[in-house]
């Protein structure tokens, strides 16, 4: 996805309003673009507060900044700059991260960022995209960068589904188990394992790569009594919006995602999926317990 992002953002630089702001991460990949547009491809060095502050200043002069780094440094380290240098100034930018939640599991806690979407969700009117396949990336970027001035967060991962659904901003039904069936909503690259988890269960599976704004109308149209959320970031991040959307209906919600514990373990993303119960077997255990409660 990162390569697709670099290619797509480089194309956007043909528009003299577009700028890219980096803090060393991916600077080599953007070097050809920087050679062509030295005044609009800006690498500030390992300075994430400045990276977001510069984006705010660029936007104040009318440019459309794309800001890119590792998720923990882009969102968590520079959170006050996101809040004040973008939102409070009334200007927007497109933040594009790589690495979350645990793409570089072996790097340890400093490079993990399961809370990134939850942090962005403390802000108002942000669009959040979590592509599940590289072929979803160009359309997502075009939608949030071009012709718009509001802010968006695009979360790129090395994890991927087998198929791309570029138009799945609104919920898209991947598997229909009929009226009244429990609804599972998979966000981004957890779709394939969610499908595997409920392969022989009567569960409708819908997919989205745009958790904000969440497709509440689509959810209301699809949801029966049971709703299962599977998100590749902090568990429960979208429980609030599902609760809002279904506030007038009796329903039960199972919100699955990454746990809060610092596991202090390395290994691979697949290992962390297993430890957080986000592999197919773990999802199946949680979903079965939810749908067939003991006693």
């Amino acid at each position: 996805m990162r390569e697709t992002f670099v290619t797509t953002a480089t194309e956007f630089l043909d528009d003299p309003r577009t700028a890219v702001v980096l803090a060393d991460i991916s600077a080599a990949a953007f070097a050809p673009a920087a050679a062509r547009h030295p005044e609009r491809v800006l690498n500030v060095g390992i300075r994430e507060q400045l990276m977001v502050g510069v984006a705010g200043g660029l936007a104040l002069t009318g440019l459309r900044p794309i800001v890119h780094s590792y998720a923990p440094f882009l969102v968590e380290r520079a959170y006050e700059q996101i809040k004040l240098d973008l939102d409070h100034q009334g200007v927007g930018a497109v933040l594009v991260s790589v690495g979350a939640s645990y793409d570089r599991a072996a790097a340890g806690r400093t490079h993990l960022a399961p809370a990134d979407v939850a942090l962005i969700d403390t802000l108002r009117d942000w669009t959040v995209h979590v592509p599940g396949h590289r072929d979803e990336v160009p359309g997502v970027l075009r939608e949030v960068v071009c012709g718009r001035q509001d802010s968006a967060y695009v979360r790129l991962s090395t994890q991927s589904n087998g198929s791309a659904y570029p138009d799945a901003g609104d919920l898209r039904v991947i598997r229909d188990a009929g009226p009244g069936a429990p609804l599972l909503v998979a966000v981004g690259p957890v779709l394939d394992r969610a499908l595997a988890a409920v392969a022989d269960r009567p569960v409708t599976v819908a997919y989205t790569h745009r958790p904000r704004p969440f497709d509440k109308a689509g959810l209301r149209a699809l949801a029966g009594t049971e709703v299962i959320l599977v998100e590749p970031y902090l568990a429960g991040t979208s429980a609030r919006v599902v609760g809002d959307a279904l506030a007038d209906r009796p329903h039960r919600l199972l919100a699955l995602g990454v746990g809060r514990a610092d596991l202090r373990r390395y290994g691979s993303p697949a290992d962390h999926d297993r430890w957080h119960g986000l592999d197919a077997a773990g999802l199946r255990r949680s979903i079965d317990a939810f749908l067939s409660p003991a006693g």
């Binding site: 005044e39 502050g53 984006a55 705010g56 200043g57 104040l60 440019l63 700059q81 240098d85």
Partner: peptide
């Protein structure tokens, strides 16, 4: 100062 650097770069 960060905002002013961005503003100067944008100009």
């Amino acid at each position: 100062l960060g905002l002013s650097v961005g503003t100067a770069l944008g100009l």
